[in-house]
Design a protein around this nucleic acid. Sequence first.
DNA 1: CTACTTGCAAAAACTTTGCGAGCTG
DNA 2: CAGCTCGCAAAGTTTTTGCAAGTAG
Lengths: 152, 152
Amino acid sequence: MDTTSGSVESGPAALRRTLHQRGLRMTPQRQLVLDAVRDLGHATPEQICAQVQQAAPAVNITTVYRTLDLLERIGMVRHTHLGHGAPTYSEQEHQHVHLVCHSCGSVTESPTDLMDGLAERLLAESDFALDASHVALSGQCRNCRDAEEDQR
Amino acid sequence: MDTTSGSVESGPAALRRTLHQRGLRMTPQRQLVLDAVRDLGHATPEQICAQVQQAAPAVNITTVYRTLDLLERIGMVRHTHLGHGAPTYSEQEHQHVHLVCHSCGSVTESPTDLMDGLAERLLAESDFALDASHVALSGQCRNCRDAEEDQR
DNA sequence: CTACTTGCAAAAACTTTGCGAGCTG
DNA sequence: CAGCTCGCAAAGTTTTTGCAAGTAG
C-alpha cells in the first residue's frame, strides 16, 4: 500500500518513517518499547519497561513513559483503561473490546463489532461517538460466577 | 431527622443497621462520607474529602479512603472508572452508563438499559456477566465532533 | 477492659519534570 | 553547532500502612 518494496508495513520501517516525518529520530529505545507493546498485547508501563529491560537493562522507566507518550501522539499505540488505575498500552491496530472480570481480574478480548449496535444507539440517542476499543467492560467471567454459586 | 417517624430506608438508619450487623460502629465520619457520595453523585476520593471537610474540617483523607473502602465492602457505594486514573464513587442505587468524551472530558449519564442488548450477547457468546455501570464508555461528544469538523 | 476508629506521619506506588551529557546530522 | 534523546535524580500525585490515642459498649 505504499512506496517501497515489500517491506512489512508494521515493521521498523513504519516507525522510522513516521518519526522522520516529524523531525524525530529512530532510536533503539523507541523500537524496543514498540516491540514490547506488540509482544505483550496490552500492558502497563511498568510491564513494558520490564520487557524492554530484558533486552537493554539500562533503559530507564522514564524513557518508557516518554516513549509511550510519543508513540501515542504519533498514533502508533493507544492506551486503554482496564479498570484499576493502570492504563495499558497496545498497538493501534490491535482493537477489540476488553472484558475485565472484577473478581479474578482476567482480561478477555472480543471483536469490536460486538459494540456496533450500541454505538449506533449512542449516536442516535445521545449524540455520542463511541470509541469501542478504548475502554474495558467490567463484569464477571464464567469461572467466577460458577465459584460464587458453589459457595452458596 | 430520623428514627422517630417513617424513617427513609436509605437514610442514616440503613447505614447504622448494616454496620451493626457486622459489629461495626456508626460514626459521624462514616455518615458524612456517605452523605458526600450521595450529594456529589460521582466523585473522586479527594472531592469527597473536600465535601466532608466543609462540615468537619478535622476529617483526614485517610479516613475517607478507609471509609469508602468499607462502604464499598458492605455494598452501600460502588466505584466506577471514568477513564483517567481516577476512580469515582457513587451510591449503589445510582446506576447508569457513563459516557466520557476523550476530547473535552465531559461525563454524560445514560440509563443502563442501553446496554441490555449487549449484555445479553456477552452472556450468550462469551459467558461474561456485564456490570454495565462499573466502567465508563469513551468516545466523543457532539460538541467536540462539531468543533473538529469546523477545523477542517 | 476489649475491640473498633481516627488522625497524623511515614511509606509506597505511580508519573512527571529538570538538567547535564551524549548523539546525530 | 543545533536540536533531539537519554539516564539519573528529584519532585509531584495519589493511595496505603503503622501506630498511638480516643471512644463506645
